[in-house]
Design a protein around this nucleic acid. Sequence first.
DNA 1: TTTATTTTGATTGATTTTGCTTGTTTTTAT
DNA 2: ATAAAAACAAGCAAAATCAATCAAAATAAA
Lengths: 256, 256
Amino acid sequence: MFPEERRNKIMTMLLENKRISVKALCEATQASEATIRRDLSYLEQHQKLERTHGGAVVLENISLTQEDSFSQKSLKLHEEKRRIAATAFHMLEENESLVLDAGTTTLELAKLIGDSNKHLVVVTNSTTVSQTIARNPNVELYAIGGRVRLNTLAAVGNMAMEALERFNVRKAFIGVNGVTIDNGLTTPDLEEARVKYQMMKIASEVTILADHSKFKKVALCEIAPIGRIDRIITDTQLKETIVSQYSQYDIEVICV
Amino acid sequence: MFPEERRNKIMTMLLENKRISVKALCEATQASEATIRRDLSYLEQHQKLERTHGGAVVLENISLTQEDSFSQKSLKLHEEKRRIAATAFHMLEENESLVLDAGTTTLELAKLIGDSNKHLVVVTNSTTVSQTIARNPNVELYAIGGRVRLNTLAAVGNMAMEALERFNVRKAFIGVNGVTIDNGLTTPDLEEARVKYQMMKIASEVTILADHSKFKKVALCEIAPIGRIDRIITDTQLKETIVSQYSQYDIEVICV
DNA sequence: TTTATTTTGATTGATTTTGCTTGTTTTTAT
DNA sequence: ATAAAAACAAGCAAAATCAATCAAAATAAA
């Protein structure tokens, strides 16, 4: 068995079980432990796996809070979210009013607002967004109350819906989990979907923040049909053919 | 199970629940407590989590500027506030409902609730308290919305007042800036005073959390007369003569 | 074929990991 | 306040795993 052949086999076996022991690899390849270890060392140096005492495990990107341990891909996706948020931020004019929902991309926007001096009126149902935006003393901040979903820290339910009704804002920035022409905008949780829809209703201009991975995906609950929105900000990896489809519905697609 | 594999599992489990106990990890990984503790130590050193007695919690990237403006206040008499909060916490029964206002002492109480498993229904107008309490998955959390005062991160104003009206809770825990027999409970901001009063109205039992430094002080705005409350939790530095005065008004004063 | 290079497997001592035990600290209950 | 219980850190020794070294084997180049 050639060295490369053996390394391929190692990777195959590793990906099957997410883990693999040196012993199992010796059996499978009929090579000595020393050879296997050398292979594992090599593969680790080439960022193909992570060695551990007794074997190896697949590279995982755990830790949502620790950004340094993010894998290449999710780091990149994060970079894209930041660019999307930055574009949205630059669309904001002085003294404009906006509503922000809960989500990772909108949180990025919140960070930009929080670290700026822009005068804004912000409405949000997200505890996290509130706290972030509060760093900017020039913001007039309105928190939407209601039952709090603990995993997203967003207020939902009737109270949130009614509270939102009282506001009228210029722009809405909404994060979603799925975007398609046929199924429109979708998200996994029904109550959050309703809140997001309500946010759209109270805004004169609706902008969706969604990186390319959200397109052609359908989540469980519909927020609104695609015709309900005015603009999507996404990243440059979105195919031109998809962009043009949305243009037919009078939706401005901004790729950054 | 390899060490790295086990640590990945720990992080996965941790991120699912925001908190995890050593015992649960022993069960899940079939490793000894010593091994788990070593792993937790390792992960803490690598800034992946925060250890606690009995387990670990996710790293909260607490809001920075706010944290600073808080920190000076909360550093002062911090020990006392923690003890006061702990006493309040032990007064809570399973499945009880309570309302918490914004403040450093109530935030200490929120931390205790957040790090516990107690089943509770919590109503609060504080973004910070919300986020802290949300660490406890057994809490049903209701956020009070409204205009957010940026320096305290508390919702105030008509919206907050109306939202509070909808609730009826067992216990209210209120922080104040001044406590006297004649002027009652006082605080510097009028709108916060009104919210605090509203919180008292919707609770069947009102407990004031105030360290000894708040006594014989009068702040600008009155929250409520002293007769309106049922109990004060304070620290042991409060003079006995003062304690007895409040007893005449049927107010239980607990010094811890 | 001869020579150089790479790869491999075996050996050895070093390192890592682990569970146990000890006594200490922290937490909880009384 | 005090006692009991739980959780902890530190040290230890056994087992597993590893890195380093070196010589033999395989491969490539001359």
